[in-house]
Write a protein that binds this DNA or RNA. Structure first.
Lengths: 223, 223
DNA sequence: TAATATAGATTGTTCAACAATATTAAATGA
DNA sequence: TCATTTAATATTGTTGAACAATCTATATTA
């Protein structure tokens, strides 16, 4: 029924939702500094929307974990600290560990994971470290898909968004993803072979290594 | 420094947040029917707040999973269906399974769990089935505390709130909790003894039994 | 210097109005 | 009669101004 272009898509969602998407993208792209205060007047002017609408945007993005609302003080960009990193990795161990246990050869999520690995490898060849990081994130998001739970996948996406903000705080975030392309490939191979035990061990090693390097870089960049 | 009464507490949070708390309580208490549409004008009048403030309340409660926002159509009370129940239990298996794995004798969360069991038993003696259900929920919330993750605990609380709405849809929700008081006691005993393997098995049995009975009652009540 | 008081800026909330969309009711046609 | 279309109505989305409540920064005082 699309006569010419699907021009209905953009206006299908409300203005607040569309701006929330922009806001999310800007945050992930690192246009705002962690901990930075977002003035209502300033941001409303920037997006050319009213204060009331912006407040709805803030509630939306806050619920996604990218912004923090302090009553009577304003809205701030979340700035994950050391405790947050440790906490995030505790969650990852539980949820991704569960994903490995729920894995079964031939599961659609495995194909998605392999696709992420392939794209990450291609991106590395071209030196596009930004894309390498994105695909690495997508890999782990796809892995949670093994649980076949929309709620779990949605929550994990929210967690990865917060983790992405951690990377943004670090200078050489690009190279932090490099060593994991191979580990991701090995992990998906084990899962495709149905070797849950080995995959579980590999995941533990992965998360430990990843946590340590991120925590190290984080402490170094601020110390 | 409290001269007379700590009268600052209630006004410390914004009006929207306070009304959101009321809204949440009303939803859990079952004052609104699942799937019911909440008219802005009507609810705003009921709480005696402006439409704009109510919309902030809606965003707040929506992010907690108790309300659903449909663009241009309004806000509705979530009405978990069969798929939602299955999905919720998939999440429970992953997260609570992880909690059992992370358990260690002497962990503070175990004491909380035992407290919930005791209060549930006392409530059963007095025939307060509502309280039995509440304590049962609290028991599993406390169990997730074994993971020592604020994020995981916060998310699981949100999940339990949604599950509570499922119970509200069923007539005899009270008796659905009865058989689990003993199972909860056994589970915490195994964890206190440090028998992870046995606790894991007991949890699996628990979740399977619980899922089946809830799903059965749900399908029966609507069929 | 430290504590206090004042002035200014920002957030919280309300209201009225209009635009955009959805729902209902009526009218039309087969 | 039934279905489709049209018109009328109601609801949500968004705005701007205004004021109250709270926080922040400056200036004053001891």
């Amino acid at each position: 029924m699309d006569t010419d272009l699907n021009r209905d898509a953009p206006s299908e969602r409300s203005l607040a939702m569309r701006v929330a998407t922009q806001m999310r993208d800007l945050l992930i792209a690192g246009d705002f500094a962690p901990g930075e205060k977002l003035s209502e007047h300033q941001i409303a002017t920037r997006f050319d929307i009213s204060r009331n609408t912006l407040r709805e945007v803030f509630r939306l993005v806050t619920s996604e974990g990218l912004l923090e609302h302090v009553p009577n003080r304003g809205v701030f960009v979340v700035s994950p600290d050391e405790a947050a990193i440790l906490d995030i990795y505790r969650v990852r161990r539980v949820i991704q560990g569960g994903a490995v246990q729920a894995s079964a050869p031939g599961h659609p999520a495995l194909a998605q994971m392999r696709g992420c690995v392939a794209r990450a490898q291609a991106a590395r060849e071209q030196g596009d470290w930004q894309l390498v990081g994105t695909e690495n994130m997508a890999f782990h998001g796809a892995m949670v898909g093994l649980c076949d739970s929309t709620r779990l996948s949605a929550y994990f996406a929210r967690l990865l968004a917060e983790l992405r903000l951690v990377f943004r705080q670090m200078e050489d975030s690009a190279f932090l993803h490099e060593p994991y392309i191979r580990l991701n490939a090995e992990l998906v191979a084990l899962l495709e072979a149905g070797d849950i035990a080995a995959a579980s061990t590999a995941l533990d090693a992965y998360l430990l290594k990843s946590e340590r390097s991120i925590l190290g870089a984080f402490l170094r960049d601020r110390g």
